[in-house]
């Protein structure tokens, strides 16, 4: 293993602080991690043109190798990093979706000649924002389910990996997933019965 660079040490330290409950560490992490995720995402998307399929796991594995000082005991476990990265992915993607929305608004919607690709992105952005809001609500009620969704949907973890990370049996992880999925699905399709 090569000697960790100073930025690897910094990212590793911040991730440690964040895991220990320091929320402010997240704000400092985003600018350090985002460029690398961007770069990797571009790289994977251009490979996709050549017929490869996109894989969240591959993306985050590579980010792990590049960003983390693996000499630190907490971080020799890849899952631990992916769990943190899942939250970062969510944050970054939701921020983007919000920017898209405000961009369109700020530009004076009528003037913007959106093309077809941009319109599709529009729909997906709105959908992601709705999901994010629903996840927030779910977290208030049941933080574990919300985290489970984050790990799988944003971090690309498998059921097995999720179970291991959350220290649940695989069966429980599956059951929790099913209910979370049903609940979120209902929230997004507007079928929620009224809660008095």
């Amino acid at each position: 293993m090569t000697t960790p660079s100073s930025s690897q040490q910094e990212v590793t330290r911040l991730l440690g602080d964040w895991s220990a409950g320091d929320e402010a560490a997240l704000e400092k992490l985003i600018p350090l991690v985002q460029p690398e995720l961007h770069r990797l995402a571009h790289h994977y998307m251009s490979r996709e043109c050549a017929g490869h399929t996109l894989q969240t796991t591959a993306l985050l594995d590579e980010a792990y190798l590049r960003l983390i000082d693996r000499t630190k005991p907490l971080w020799h476990d890849r899952t631990h990093f992916v769990a943190a990265a899942a939250q970062l992915m969510r944050r970054i993607m939701v921020d983007h979706a919000r920017e898209r929305r405000s961009l369109k608004r700020g530009a004076g919607a009528l003037k913007v000649t959106l093309d077809e690709a941009a319109l599709v992105t529009e729909t997906r952005s709105e959908e992601l924002l709705a999901l994010d809001e629903a996840l927030e609500r779910l977290a208030v009620q049941d933080p574990r389910k919300s985290q489970l969704v984050e790990l799988r949907y944003f971090g690309g973890l498998t059921v097995e990996e999720t179970a291991e990370f959350l220290k649940l049996s695989q069966r429980t992880a599956e059951r929790e997933w099913n209910m979370a999925k049903a609940w979120l699905y209902r929230a997004l399709s507007g079928e929620e019965p009224h809660e008095s």
Binding site: L37, E48, T53, T56, M93, A97, T121, R124, L128, F154
Partner: peptide, 8 residues
């Protein structure tokens, strides 16, 4: 990421 990579 696999369905909407452009959001990243």
């Amino acid at each position: 990421f696999e369905v909407a990579p452009e959001l990243l």
